[in-house]
Design a binder for these strands. Structure first.
Length: 569
RNA sequence: CGGGGUGUAGCGCAGCGGGAGCGCACCUGCUUUGGGAGCAGGGGGUCAGAGGUUCAAAUCCUCUCACCCCGACCA
């Protein structure tokens, strides 16, 4: 491809609304352009990279016997009503009416469509398992699109679905997918962690997210500095330094005027925050419930919700607490409350530890409050937000926190969709059973961004050799020098004939401009025919990633480059 | 949806009652040619839109629209 003919343009200045480095570089290098909020055009360079991403994904899917198909993006309302998600999915679902006033959604995901299809086509256990995938544009009416391609309203995704006769069979495919995802991300040269995740709106039991470590990620993860443990912050657990124990002392009431928060009480009585019990009032399915945590901990609402099977939970307002329970925030505590349900984080459920706790009387706290002796609950769960610096639940090494961006997500759905959609097959005994399902997504267009987040420097993008839009760029420093131009053209043709994808910078620009553009675009190898060539007849081959360069005779260029390319992969 | 902000040339911005400007990009010419060149000349605008105040509005007021940031939300 001659650069003079390539539909692209690089920008020196950064469009004001770009913040993430990947967004800035993809705009500056002429890969993407914004059409509206969260809507982007992929220019030819980006399309080439997308195809490479897709093909890596495609290969690994086919490797584990998943078959490619293409489902409709346009989906009638009815199918979403059967699964119950027309109501449940919320405003993120792009909806509209056609001219007959019939309602539709633009698919954000395809569980309904595929379950319906498989139900129609598959009726016997003999046809199972079956695994299918598609690469398609999806739509989500995101509350707030962000960071360019990282969170957009129209995006490209690979989603796969599998159907099984039982859980054991699902388990096999689930882990096949899991390992395929690892391979895919490794082939793209990404540094990532697979984490245990909350399954959120899609539902199901087991779920892992593939988090790529990036500064502009929207999720926080904790991972072990030693073993492979990693988890989404909302799911992470940890072990921690034990409390100091003390023999029982008599409980006492102390005046704590104007000390309401844990911090204030801690300062007033001169005791570390962790020895002050934090008592929070929540409504769980309407029932007022007191939640007890150590003072320096924060409640993890996701853990709370999961502990109660996904029931509706909400924090009570100070007014509600006053009206319904005649307690005021700042002096609430678990001691001597009989009519309120009590839930404890397991960290505070240890004997021989002396706590302070609200006395349920304005301006007073109890001291020497002991678990079991002074407060007790059967409802003991891990409810706290784990923190960096605490210890891995598997191996005990320190946990590290990082932000990450979700590149992929695998779920075991079980019968969450097949049951309500009455998607059944006949088992060996002729009995009707719902399909056991799994679903597996990878954000194709998001990966374009994620890869740039991890592969760039101050000069621009540095594509891994597996994803570059072109492998080599041939640069005659001065196109008016016929000797340079002819040699460059010869090398260009030779490389092309070897099946190497190559750009030829035939533009009548100064060398500096061409170098800057080549670096910005992120082409792995530059071949420069310029000053060195005119002096010594040697051409320069420069590697984008480390800036190293070598001088070789022109007729050895193509061999040298093919060799280098193999090393770069 | 709440809070904050911005809409002026393709991009980045200044101007904030009286001439629509600067830098980059673009076009022409000459020079230059190894890390985003120099000089000279040139084209490009419904100052987001509608209404209002004023002798006079990009500038002040009202409404609408679009976009961005923070938060709530989130396969």
């Amino acid at each position: 491809m001659k650069l003079s003919k390539l539909f692209f343009r690089t920008l020196k200045e950064v469009p004001g609304d770009a913040e993430a480095i990947s967004h800035i570089l993809l705009l500056r290098a002429g890969y993407i352009r914004r059409l509206g909020s969260g809507i982007y055009t992929y220019l030819p360079l980006a399309k080439k990279v997308l195809l490479k991403i897709e093909n890596i994904v495609r290969e690994e899917m086919i490797n584990i016997n998943s078959q490619e198909l293409l489902l409709p993006a346009l989906q009638p309302k009815e199918i979403w009503e059967i699964s119950g998600r027309w109501k449940k999915y919320g405003p993120e679902l792009m909806r509209f009416k056609d001219r007959h006033d019939k309602e539709y959604a633009l698919g954000p995901t395809h569980e309904e469509v595929i379950t319906d299809l498989i139900n129609r086509e598959v009726s016997s256990y003999k046809q199972l398992p079956i695994s299918v995938f598609q690469i398609q544009t999806k739509f989500r009416d995101e509350i707030r699109p962000r960071f360019g391609l990282m969170r957009s309203r129209e995006f490209i995704m690979k989603d796969a679905y599998s159907f099984h006769r039982n859980e054991e069979d699902l388990d096999v495919t689930y882990w096949d997918m899991f390992h395929a995802y690892e391979k895919i991300l490794n082939r793209m040269g990404l540094n990532f962690k697979s984490v245990e995740a909350d399954s959120g709106a899609i539902g199901g039991s087991v779920s892992h997210e593939f988090m790529v470590l990036t500064p502009y990620g929207e999720d926080k993860i904790l991972y072990c500095s030693s073993c492979s443990y990693a988890a989404n912050l909302e799911k992470a657990s940890s072990s921690y330094e034990p409390f100091d124990t003390r023999d029982f002392a008599e409980m006492d009431i102390v005046s704590t005027p104007n000390a309401k928060t844990v911090d204030e009480v801690s300062k007033f009585v001169g005791v570390d925050q962790k020895y002050i019990l934090k008592s929070l009032m929540y409504k769980i399915e309407g029932e007022p419930t007191m939640i007890i945590l150590a003072g320096d901990d924060e409640l993890n609402e996701v853990k709370l919700k999961n502990a109660f099977g996904g029931k509706e939970i909400s924090m009570m307002t100070p007014d509600e607490i006053k009206q319904k329970l005649d307690l005021s925030v700042g002096s609430i505590g678990p001691v001597k409350v009989n009519n309120i349900k009590l839930i404890c984080d397991k960290r505070v459920c240890v004997e021989n530890v002396s706590f302070y706790a609200g006395a349920n009387k304005d301006g007073y706290h109890f001291k020497n409050v002991y678990f079991k002796r002074d407060f007790y609950s059967d409802n003991i769960f891990d409810l706290r937000v784990s923190k960096a610096g605490e210890f891995c639940p598997h191996c005990g090494a320190k946990l590290v926190e990082s932000t990450g961006s979700e590149a992929g997500h695998v779920f075991k759905l079980g019968t969450k969709y097949s049951e309500p959609m009455k998607a059944y097959f006949k088992d060996e005994n002729g009995k009707e059973k719902p399909f056991e399902m799994g679903c597996y997504g990878i954000g194709i267009s998001r990966l374009l961004s994620i890869v740039v987040e991890q592969h760039h420097d101050e000069f621009g993008i540095i594509w891994p050799a597996t994803l570059c839009p072109y492998q080599v760029i041939v640069i005659p420093a001065n196109v008016k020098d016929e000797n340079q131009l002819n040699t460059a053209e010869m090398i260009f043709h030779e490389l092309r004939d070897r099946g190497i994808s190559v750009l030829f910078d035939d533009r009548d620009d100064r060398a500096g401009v061409k170098f800057k553009d080549a670096d910005l675009l992120g082409i792995p190898i530059k071949i420069i025919i310029g000053g060195h060539f005119s002096k010594s007849g040697l051409i320069e081959i420069k590697i984008r990633r480390d800036g190293s360069s070598n001088l070789v005779p022109p007729d050895e260029a193509s061999v040298y480059v093919s060799l280098k390319l193999r090393q770069l992969i």
